[in-house]
Every structure is written in C-alpha cells, then in structure tokens.
Simulated assay, not measured.
Amino acid sequence: MTRWLFLLIFIFTIGAAILFAYVGGFKEASVTVTTTDAPVFLAGQAFKGLASDEKFGPLFRSVKDAKDQGRLHGELANIYYNDPAKARDTVRAFIGLVVADTVSQQLPAGYRYRTFAAGQRVVQARITASYLVAPNKLYPAITDAVKQQQLKLKHVYLERFPEQGESEVLAVVE
C-alpha cells in the first residue's frame, strides 16, 4: 500500500511540474528600463475598493465576456494606480482591453476609455507565460530591477495579457 501511495504522489508531482512548465512557471522575466513611445488606449471599467470585494472578480469576467462575445476587440489589460501586491486596503484599477484607438469601436454600456500616456519612463518586464503565473514572475522582476538601479516607483502599472505572445507589466518610475 505504501508503495502505491508513494508512486501516486510521485506521478502527481511529475504531472504538476510538467503543467507548471507548460504554463511558463519556470521561465524568467526579461526586464528593461525604457520610455513609452506611444499612448496605450484601454476600454473598460474603473474599480476602487477591496481586492476581496465581490464586484472585483466579476469585473474581470465581464471584460473577458465582452471580448469573447465580440462586443469589444483587443487584448486583456489593466492599469493599477497603486501597488496591487501591497494594496491590502484599497485597490484602484481600470480593468479592460487594449484597443487601437478611441473611435473605431462602440463601447458597451458602462465602459469608458483610459489612456496610459506616452513619454513615461517605465520598467518593462516581459515573459511568455500564462496570465495565471505571469504576475508572480513580472512584479518581483520589476522590484529587483528598481532596487538594483535605484529607481523610484510611482505605483502606476499597466498589465497586458495577450492570448499569444509575451505578457508584460510596465511600472512607471521617476
């Protein structure tokens, strides 16, 4: 019986490691300090409140549903106006999709546009991984780069999670 239990645990561990590798869990983020060259337009909804608020999770799902149903075209993205990892009390965010411009699509009811401005100095972290593991790789990479280069964060973050290609976080610095 003990051998079977050990074998079952071993197979489960190997399967979990393979799944983790498949979603990009063992990859490292690439980090650069750069200046944004063009504005990024988002269509979505603003949120201010606790991350545990019952309205926060459904907001992400409603944006994904709008994309899946063809009511909006773009890639999933968020702007956080405070550090999402440290925002235990209040999260200030804009949840939406990166869109090409502010005129080519009609917005669903309750949606607005936001712009992540051009000309901002940012720490850019990128990784080819699932959106499930990417934030846990990107934010620590940004924190390390900020410490190493002695930069100061302004606590404004743009997260982008395309279906294909690299996920990225842009963290505005002074």
Rank of each mutant, 00 (worst) to 15 (best):
T2F: 08
R3T: 08
R3L: 01
L5Q: 12
L7E: 06
L8Y: 13
I9E: 04
I9A: 15
F10K: 07
F10P: 03
I14R: 02
L19A: 14
A21L: 00
G24C: 08
G24F: 09
G25T: 06
K27S: 02
S30G: 05
T32R: 15
T36C: 02
D37F: 06
P39Y: 02
F41D: 04
L42E: 06
G44H: 13
A46G: 14
K48Q: 14
K48H: 14
A51M: 14
S52W: 09
D53V: 01
E54N: 12
K55W: 09
K55S: 12
K55R: 15
F56I: 03
R61Y: 14
R61P: 00
V63I: 15
K67M: 12
Q69P: 00
G70V: 04
G70P: 06
G70S: 06
L72E: 02
L72T: 07
L72Y: 10
H73K: 15
L76T: 03
L76M: 13
A77Q: 05
P84M: 01
P84Y: 11
K86N: 12
A87H: 11
A87S: 14
A87P: 04
D89R: 15
T90Q: 12
T90V: 13
R92T: 13
A93I: 02
A93W: 05
I95F: 09
G96F: 10
L97H: 12
D101L: 02
D101W: 10
V103F: 09
S104M: 03
S104Y: 09
S104L: 03
Q105C: 04
Q105E: 10
Q106A: 09
A109D: 11
A109C: 00
Y111I: 01
Y113E: 02
R114S: 09
R114V: 06
F116R: 10
F116D: 03
A118S: 15
A118K: 15
A118C: 05
Q124Y: 06
Q124K: 15
R126P: 00
R126Q: 14
I127Q: 05
I127W: 08
S130C: 07
Y131L: 08
L132W: 13
L132Y: 11
V133T: 07
V133L: 04
A134N: 01
A134K: 08
A134F: 06
P135A: 05
L138K: 11
A141N: 02
A141I: 01
A141Q: 04
T143R: 15
D144V: 03
A145T: 03
K147P: 01
Q150A: 12
L151Q: 08
K152Y: 01
K152H: 14
K154I: 01
H155K: 15
Y157W: 07
E159I: 01
E159K: 07
R160A: 07
R160I: 04
R160G: 04
F161G: 01
P162H: 14
E163F: 10
G165W: 08
G165R: 09
E166D: 15
S167C: 07
E168P: 00
V169C: 08
A171D: 07
E174D: 14
